[in-house]
Simulated assay, not measured.
Amino acid sequence: MTSIDKNAALVIIDVQQGFDESEWGSTTNPGCEDNIDALAAAWVSTGRPIVVVRHDSKNAGSSLHPGQPGNALKPSVAALPASLLVTKNVNSAFIGDPDLHQWLGRQGIRQLVMCGIQTNMCVETTARMGGNLGYDVIVPLDATRTFGLVEVAPRNGTTLSATADEVMRMTALNLAAGGFATVTSTADLLPLI
Rank of each mutant, 00 (worst) to 15 (best):
V44G: 08
M170E: 10
L104H: 03
L80H: 11
T184C: 06
E166C: 05
W103P: 06
E151V: 15
K74E: 05
G131D: 01
M170K: 13
E33A: 12
A42Q: 10
K58E: 11
L112G: 04
V15C: 13
S45G: 10
L133Y: 14
G18C: 05
P75E: 03
P69F: 04
R128T: 12
A164H: 11
A79Y: 07
A41C: 13
H101F: 12
D136S: 13
A164K: 06
K6R: 15
R110C: 11
C32N: 09
Q68V: 00
L190H: 09
L160I: 12
C122T: 07
G108I: 04
A177W: 13
A79W: 12
L100T: 00
P81R: 08
T171I: 03
D14T: 06
A38R: 15
N120Y: 08
E151L: 15
N59C: 02
N120M: 10
M170N: 13
D142C: 02
F147G: 00
M129C: 13
P140M: 02
D165A: 14
T27H: 10
G131R: 00
M1W: 12
W103S: 03
V53M: 06
P49A: 11
S3V: 09
S57V: 07
Q17Y: 08
P191E: 03
R145W: 13
K74S: 02
V53Q: 02
K58Y: 07
Q107K: 14
L175R: 06
A176L: 12
Q68K: 14
P75M: 01
F94T: 00
S92C: 03
N156A: 11
V77G: 00
P69D: 01
A176S: 15
M129R: 15
A164S: 15
A93W: 02
G31F: 05
A72P: 03
N174A: 14
P154W: 08
T146R: 04
Q118K: 11
G130D: 06
T119N: 08
P154Q: 07
G67K: 12
S26A: 15
F94D: 01
S76N: 13
L190A: 07
Y135I: 03
R145D: 02
S62G: 08
Q118R: 05
E33I: 11
A93E: 01
S22C: 02
N59S: 10
F19A: 00
D5H: 14
V52G: 02
I50Y: 06
G134E: 02
Q17F: 07
Q68P: 02
C122P: 03
L173N: 12
S57K: 00
Y135E: 02
T126L: 05
I13M: 07
E166K: 12
L10M: 10
N132V: 09
M129Q: 15
V53A: 00
P49G: 09
T27G: 04
P49T: 13
D188G: 11
L85V: 13
Q16S: 00
A40K: 04
W103Y: 12
R106M: 13
M168N: 13
H55F: 13
N89P: 09
V167T: 10
I117E: 00
T126F: 07
Q118C: 12
I12P: 00
T27M: 10
V167L: 08
F180H: 15
